[in-house]
Design a binder for these strands. Structure first.
Lengths: 232, 232
DNA sequence: CGACGATTTGAATAGGATCAATGGGAGTGG
DNA sequence: CCACTCCCATTGATCCTATTCAAATCGTCG
């Protein structure tokens, strides 16, 4: 890894409390690699060889069973994925592929575990990160079980809108079919859900969406801190 | 807490690697309490004051939003719940109530966090536990998104059957309405799903279920290690 | 321009939810 | 011990949401 890359990685929350020597040791055998769009990085069922950190781009976590496939999450910078598998030294429960060209840090499982053992500050960071991931999935699960498809879409739009500066425009950074899978519906149904939201000020043009009546959308979506707020 | 109780708690995976002094300190202000059925222990949105450990009985974790309610999980001995909220010092994302009369260990959040800081072995146990919880929710999420209601029921029966000794009989330790919510369906639909499974050797009598054709049930359910196997 | 993939639209279907009514224990009180 | 009650579970009928299959449209890229 280049010195520039190393200092960039160093700044991540997960690593910033770590002691220098431990950090150096851990990154010793790590890769920082750029993958083109649609590269498969890991496959569910494989044993966890690396912890992954998304530096740039976006990664789709997905899973299959019995011929069906669904998107579990989209991971954006700067976040880790499949941390739990690494810590338990188990197989991955999800596959991962790049959505777009992405830069990814790969840290060998053994190095992460060793660093965890020898660096209490890192251990605390790991736990915070892992607990955050856990709570994110719980929220996803609540979202899926407690809301209809249209409500899920509305809330997702509101969330993206807030994340992207709340200026009335939302840009989707993945195709609609991926968004559909992420929200637990078919592409056709997503298209119809967008139509349903039209009277609530949702104007779709390609992957750019204008929200012209946030108040109305809010009434429909009924956002809930304990589902939608990622900082909680 | 009584000495008997303390030694019982001591044997739990989560605590067995802990140093004695740390264990004593942590349990200093802990309660071991028995609750009657249908007692609400925690409410989503409240701040995490205690880590809970189910010693006997069973606990339902549930969540509400916008007038709807769903069961997130049933926690059985010996397992913890809402560990992530405790570690992040955040609010609970789920509510909890006893399904039946239950004995529950309650450890104040501060004590858990202090013990985590001062005892590396405990820290490792915590991480293993938390990672296990995370993976359990991921599996639930895959289960919900990748399977139909009937398939979810079939797989749940197979899982319970294996857990309960695989002798052809399964006993449900909660009402069917709770099972329905757990599987993400209505009670009516659960009832119909049981009927659908009748040709596959599923005979329901109250909360006792006979499985007379496991091979056929397996073909329908297509169990998947990466969803159904809790040890993976 | 043409081709391909992604999205949208339409029609039919299936899966699940809702509403309403009935059956069936478990527990209570006479 | 029996009748009553209450709650849970089941069944039936209907409605609604979402999926499926098919076709048309849009956009992008060569």
């Amino acid at each position: 890894m280049r010195p520039d890359d190393i200092s960039e990685v160093r700044k991540l929350h997960l690593f910033e409390d770590m002691q220098d020597s431990n950090f150096q040791t851990m990154l010793n055998a790590a890769y920082l690699q750029t993958f083109p769009a649609q590269s498969e990085l890991i496959r569910e069922g494989d044993s966890a060889d690396f912890l992954y950190v998304v530096m740039e781009g976006s990664i789709e976590l997905f899973a299959k069973s019995n011929g069906r496939e669904t998107t579990m999450a989209i991971v954006r910078p700067v976040n880790t994925f499949i941390l739990a598998a690494v810590l338990k030294d188990a197989v991955y429960l999800m596959s991962a592929r790049t959505v777009e060209r992405s830069r990814v840090l790969m840290i060998p499982t053994d190095n992460v575990r060793t660093a965890f053992e020898s660096d209490p500050d890192f251990a605390r960071s790991i736990v915070t990160e892992l607990a955050g991931c856990y709570r994110a999935v719980i929220k996803d699960h609540k979202n899926l079980k407690l809301r209809s498809a249209v409500e899920r879409l509305a809330n997702r739009l509101i969330k993206y809108h807030a994340e992207q500066g709340a200026n009335g425009v939302v840009e989707l950074f993945h195709d609609k079919r991926t968004l559909a899978a992420l929200l637990g519906m078919t592409p056709e149904n997503l298209s119809r859900a967008f139509n349903t939201l039209k009277p609530y000020g949702v104007e779709v043009k390609g992957n750019c969406i204008k929200l012209t009546d946030l108040a109305a959308l809010d009434v429909l979506a009924k956002p809930n801190q304990l589902i939608d707020d990622r900082t909680v």
